[in-house]
Amino acid sequence: MRRTVVLAVTTVATVLSALLVAPQAAQAHGYISSPPSRQALCAQRAVSFDCGQIQWEPQSVEGPKGLRNCHANIGHFAVLNDDSRPWPATSVGQTVNFNWVLTARHATSLWEYYIGGSRIAVFDDGGRQPGATVQHTVNMGGRSGRQKLLAVWNVADTANAFYVCVDLQIGGGGGNPNPNPTPTRTNNPTTPPPTTAPPPAGGTWRAGTAYQVGSQVTYGGATYRCLQPHTAIAGWEPPNVPALWQRV
């Protein structure tokens, strides 16, 4: 408490966050975006089953340090640790570049990568703030076939870590990453694969459609003309985005 008061008069950032903490218990955040981790696949709805809550917050798999599972013991993220689900695996070679999405750059001790019970790579940030983008190149150590990799981001100044599992199909002795076809999107209500925009003659506005300048759509009984090329998404309904659509 005393510390909070001191900090509050010290920095604006702390004051702002103190006010913010009250309305929401913000936790912080990061996950592996490529090769796609289980939570990244859930966020894209690129899996054949319902992931539940994790699809809305793939960055939130945070738990105490020292765990060795995919869901940080968080009950409503348990699907991440369920190996019986048909998780698509990404084909890779012996050397794999792992890219992280971070929403905050927490001081970091170790980034760890495990396959089976073995730690196959470790990167020591020594308590420094990581860069805005983080990429690690990890050697698969001669392993082959389907493997579940667990990556752990250990935050230096809290007791917590972030946990991420990535399903890999490791190829033969090649030294280079071996890009895989995109996992099949099977269940994607908000952004189905883009389809060709209808000619300006009309049609009902639909998320997932790629619209060109001049495309016309109907929405809520009104007609709109597209001002800016884009693929339609939820939240960008024509009356809500005057920068994209002009009412005719």
């Binding site: 966020a43 895989n180 939240g235």
Partner: peptide
């Protein structure tokens, strides 16, 4: 609400644009 759903959909799109094998 619109920021929540539109950014979530953008994240979905962008994850799909990343190179699969890093």
């Amino acid at each position: 609400r619109r920021i929540d759903v539109s950014r979530t959909a953008q994240i979905d799109q962008m994850l799909g644009m990343l190179p699969k094998a890093g």
